[in-house]
Design a protein around this nucleic acid. Structure first.
Length: 227
DNA sequence: CCCCAGGATTGCT
DNA sequence: AGCAATCATGGG
């Protein structure tokens, strides 16, 4: 799997992804970017900054209509308004001790916020809180499928995290490269030029159905006993 | 006019 | 546990 990273890096270089000033900005962006282009998010962030709403306290207290107006360009603006304001409330309360919370504790708290699912939580954990959590998004799923890795969110994440060194910067860059690559190649159906099939040659040439059973089969949970 | 984008929630089976 | 409908704007 690390060969894949090397391949993508040598081909596409450093991505300098997720440009943002503060952890709070990253977290707001993580909500806004759901099912939307990043260019729209940038506009919304600019609007929020311009109106002084890019801080936890001011955003939390702002009138709903005002926030909606600023982020409307990202779509789903009513839900997203409610959700970024919840994020803002969370940061208002916890901005002092977020860095002290254990990763899994933080993750659980983030997931309690309506509108924060697995991917958004891990994006916040990785890009805002600098925790080694590999983000699984639609592109990562698609590429995983192509090289015969299947499973739910947690299984895919586990597979990536066990296959590469536990390093925050590596996680960031790898994920950024996957997204960049998928946009350039998968979205344009340039499968004939696929770098991934080539770079994974030899490490994984099993048929899609039989590859995953060996690595995952036992779901060893060390967290809560059940739901 | 159609489909898709750096998802999550809800409801149904 | 898995699947479809829903949310909504902006670009190609």
């Amino acid at each position: 799997m690390i060969q894949l990273y090397e391949k993508l890096f040598s081909e596409l270089g450093d991505q300098n992804w997720w440009p943002a000033e503060t952890p709070f900005e990253v977290s707001v962006g993580a909500i806004l970017t759901q099912q939307t282009r990043w260019e729209s998010v940038e506009r919304a962030i600019t609007n929020l900054r311009k109106t002084g709403l890019l801080q936890p306290e001011s955003l939390a207290m702002a009138k709903r209509e005002i926030v909606e107006e600023q982020i409307r360009c990202t779509g789903f603006y009513r839900q997203k308004t409610e959700r970024v304001q919840e994020i803002a409330r969370y940061f208002s309360k916890n901005s002092n001790n977020i860095s002290k919370k254990p990763t899994e504790t933080l993750r659980k708290e983030l997931l309690e916020i309506k509108g924060v699912g697995d991917e958004t939580a891990d994006s916040i954990l990785l890009y805002a809180a600098e925790r080694p959590k590999f983000v699984i998004d639609a592109y990562t799923r698609r590429i995983s499928e192509c090289i015969g890795i299947r499973g739910n969110y947690k299984e895919l994440q586990q597979h990536f995290e066990e296959s590469i060194p536990r390093d925050v910067e590596l996680y960031k860059n790898f994920h950024a490269l996957i997204v960049r690559y998928a946009k350039e190649y998968c979205n344009k159906k340039r499968c004939d030029e696929c770098l991934i099939q080539n770079s994974m040659n030899g490490t994984n040439d099993h048929p899609p159905e039989t590859i995953f059973k060996t690595t995952i089969s036992s779901s060893d949970e060390t967290e809560s006993s059940n739901d």
